[in-house]
Amino acid sequence: MGIRSVMLPAAIAATLCAGGVARAEGLTVGFSQIGSESGWRAAETTVTRQEAKKNGDTVKIADAQQKQENQIKAIRSFIAQGVDGIFLAPVVATGWTQVLTEAKDAKIPVILLDRDIDPADKALYLTAVTSDSVHEGQVAGDWLVKAVGSKPCNVVEIEGTVGASVAANRKKGFDDAVAKDPNIKIIRSETGDFTRSQGKQVMESFIKSVGGKNICAVYAHNDDMMIGAIQAMKEAGLKPGQDILTVSVDSVPDMFKAMMAHEANATVELTPDMAGPAFQALNAYKKSGTVPPKWIETKSTLHTSQDSDLQQIYDEKKNLGY
């Protein structure tokens, strides 16, 4: 019995090692994904698979169903499998020191995707690939400043969930950008909880409290709320995209549909391609030992209804799982 209890784990370890050794030329990466709570996250998972395929790498995806303990378990199993690198989309900012130290001891680089963590020691991860949500707000604000020119413009703002850092950052970036222009005034600001139905309800109340004619532009912290707001404007007999300018953040496929119908003006992209830069950094690190900067910022591309490639982007995004 004594022997058997030693033999069994040893046998498992051996199989796992064999699995790790018998890999092809590309790297094997373990990706601990938070879950699939939003369309964007589903798209991120799909893009990660595509990127791995493109590079000839292998990616093993573990869905944590919004639980940190599942992510920690997944990372431990990736370490046991001897992967070349670990991608982690952390569900929370704290509590990672122990498991990341284990990865470091096993000499497996960890790259954070989409969200940052708050570790005591920054050396616990190689780099973090995230977007800058303050910058996203700025891009949206800069577009509006350009679009209205010297005309006076009353803006209503549909905020994300109160207390969400993304909402606070997108607000700050936008507010700072339009503050430079004295013509632009933010007259109302309410939370739409990042959902279509709340976005619609908030816009309805804006139209009633300040009057549709007095609103020149809407800024929403995400596209879903804007899609709801567009519906509210249409139901009130207004023409979104023409009577009222719209700018929002995310670039979900439905927003491209709205822009093609000239019912929306602009959207700032939060790219689901966090894995692309991560694979690049990991490959460079593995092959030539190049240490990437601690933060790799993804691009916040602006798409407007004037663009000619809307249909093409829509077709590309449609199948990503948004």
Binding site: E190, Q201, K208, S209
Partner: peptide
């Protein structure tokens, strides 16, 4: 809910 939205009170 509707009254709060109409009032323009900060979301917090």
């Amino acid at each position: 809910n509707t009254g709060i939205l109409l009032s323009g009170l900060p979301a917090e």
